[in-house]
Design a protein around this nucleic acid. Structure first.
Length: 562
RNA sequence: CGGAGUGUAGCUCAGGUGGGAGAGCACGUGCCUUGGGAGCACGGGGUCGCAGGUUCAAGUCCUGCCACUCCGACCA
């Protein structure tokens, strides 16, 4: 490609509204342009990278035995109503009507559509297993799109869906997909973690996320360097050390004027924060109240609570609601409470602890379970944090942020049951198909790669996703000899099928260097002053090589690059 | 959805107290220049986000709306 005939509108200054490096450089270097919030155009440079990533994904999915197809983006509401997601998905679902006033949605994901296809065409165990995938534009009306391609309202996703006759087989398929995902993210050169994850609204039995380690990541991860345990904090478990037994002391009500927060109570009563038990009143799905007890030093994990209650969402009760329950804000406690009481495991072997008295300005000390009140049970509602003991090997956990680029779920029968996607098994009985689903954020991967591969001058693409492999700069285009040499190398590379960009624009040398640094093409051949000595310069964009090469040695150099 | 901010040329932005629409870069033409976003000269380019209001007069003041960004909540 000749730069003079190409379209690479680079910007001299950072876009005013971009914060993270991938957003800044993808826009500045002319890979993408914004059209509306969370909606981007892929310019020729960005499109080339996108196709490279897609093809790497495609290769590994095909190798793993998945079948590529293409489902409609426009999906009838009737399918979404079958699974209940027409209501559950909420504002994120882009909805529209056709001329007959029939409701449709732009697909944010395709469980319903693929399940419909399968139920219409699969009758017997002999038709299974099946594993489909597609690479397609998805739509989600996100409340807050941000960071360029990292969170968009229109984005490109690889979504895959598997159908098996048994959970055992489904788990095997899941493992094959997991393996394919590792190959994909490794080939893309990403520094990533696979972590245990919460299944969230998509549902299912268990799931794993693939998370790229970047500072701007939205996913919070804890991991163990020793044994390799890694999980999204939403799902992360952690070990609680057993506490020694203590003689039970007499319960006592104490005056704690305006002392509300855990820290204040601990300071005022001169007890460690681990002796305080927080009583959090939650409202589940806007109807039922529940009290949750948790040790003062541990944050409650709302995802775990939501899952335990089988609720769609939970929130803390507001002060007015507390008042209607007879609880003064800041002094909630379990004693005398007539709503269900659940407790985190951290409270299980705790003795002589402090709780609110459900009375303004009073707490109880030396409280014990079950002597002083009854609860429904002890469960894991804690949020893991840095330093907590690993649930597997008890070493201190580390915390990091990451960008979710892949997520796989063992769905089970959630969709097949809701949509009657059944098959007749060997035993002649009709059974729901066991499903799995597997997503990769393809457009987000562009950003993820740039987040990990850039410097202060621009992008540094890994070879296998770079828009071009070699960038030739002819610094002085008025120099006929330089033009001749540059075009000669260009033609030779083209003949060998190498993707090469030749910058023969009649602009200053400085601009060519600046653009080349921004674009990030990994290999660069500079034809400049050293041509007088019969030499050109070979550079790597990452700065690791900067050599003068004799013209007659060019062929062997190029051969080494291929 | 809560909080904050921004909106003036293609881009980055300046335009106290109301009165002339501007700068740098980019763009066009010419000259000059070609190893790190050169220089000189001339030139083109505007619904000052939109709508209403106050005023003799609004980029500027008031009201409403819209769009975009950031923080948070949310998010397969």
């Amino acid at each position: 490609m000749l730069a003079s005939k190409f379209f690479m509108p680079t910007l001299k200054e950072n876009p005013a509204d971009a914060i993270v490096p991938s957003h800044i450089y993808l826009v500045r270097a002319g890979f993408i342009r914004p059209l509306a919030a969370g909606i981007y155009e892929y310019l020729p440079l960005g499109f080339r990278v996108l196709k490279k990533i897609e093809n790497i994904i495609r290769k590994h999915m095909d190798n793993a035995g998945a079948l590529e197809l293409l489902l409609p983006i426009l999906t009838p509401a009737s399918l979404w109503k079958e699974t209940g997601r027409w209501d559950v998905y909420g504002k994120e679902l882009f909805r529209l009507k056709d001329r007959k006033d029939t409701d449709f949605a732009l697909g944010p994901t395709h469980e319903e559509t693929i399940t419909d296809l399968v139920r219409k065409n699969v009758r017997s165990y002999k038709d299974l297993p099946l594993n489909f995938y597609q690479i397609q534009t998805k739509f989600r009306d996100e409340a807050r799109p941000r960071y360029g391609l990292i969170r968009g309202r229109e984005f490109i996703m690889k979504d895959g869906y598997s159908f098996d006759v048994s959970e055992e087989d489904a788990i095997k398929t899941y493992e094959v997909m997991k393996d394919a995902y590792h190959k994909i993210f490794k080939e893309l050169g990403l520094d990533y973690l696979m972590v245990e994850a919460d299944v969230g609204a998509i549902g299912g039995k268990f799931s794993h996320e693939f998370v790229v380690k970047v500072p701007s990541g939205e996913a919070h991860i804890v991991y163990c360097e020793k044994c390799g345990y890694a999980a999204n904090v939403e799902a992360a478990k952690f070990h609680r050390h057993k506490l020694p037994p203590e003689p039970l002391l007499e319960k006592e009500k104490v005056y704690t004027p305006s002392i509300k927060s855990v820290e204040e109570v601990a300071n005022f009563l001169k007890v460690p924060i681990t002796k305080i038990v927080k009583t959090l009143i939650y409202k589940a799905d806007e109807k039922d109240y529940v009290a949750v007890l948790i040790r003062g030093d541990i944050e409650l994990n709302e995802t775990k609570l939501t899952n335990h209650l089988k609720a769609i969402e939970v929130r803390l009760a507001n002060p007015e609601e507390l008042e209607s329950l007879g609880i003064p804000e800041g002094f909630a406690g379990p004693i005398g409470l007539n709503i269900p009481i659940l407790a985190d495991k951290s409270v299980e072997d705790l003795h002589n602890f402090v709780v609110g008295a459900n009375e303004k300005d009073y707490h109880y000390i030396n409280v014990n379970i079950p002597r002083d009140f009854k609860i429904e049970g002890f469960y894991d509602f804690g949020t893991a944090k840095e330093g907590d003991p690993c649930p597997v090997c008890h070493s201190p956990l580390k915390e990091t942020t990451g960008l979710e680029v892949g997520h796989i779920f063992l769905l089970g029968t959630k969709y097949s049951k809701a949509m009657n996607a059944n098959f007749v098994d060997k035993d002649g009985k009709e059974k729901p198909i066991i499903m799995g689903c597997y997503g990769i954020g393809v457009s987000r991967l562009i950003s993820a790669i740039v987040e990990q591969y850039h410097d202060d001058k621009g992008i540094i693409w890994p070879d296998n996703v770079a828009p071009f492999k070699i960038h030739i700069l002819i610094l002085n285009t008025k120099d006929e000899k330089a033009m001749e040499v540059g075009f000669d190398i260009y033609r030779k590379l083209k003949e060998k099928g190498v993707e090469v960009l030749l910058d023969e624009r009649d602009i200053s040398a400085g601009m060519k260097f600046k653009d080349a640094d921004l674009l990030g093409i990994p290999h660069r051949i500079v034809i400049g002053k050293s041509l007088q000595e019969g030499k050109v310069e070979y550079q790597k964009r990452d700065g690791s090589i900067k050599d003068l090469v004799n013209l007659e040695d060019m062929d062997s150099l190029l051969k080494g690059l291929l």
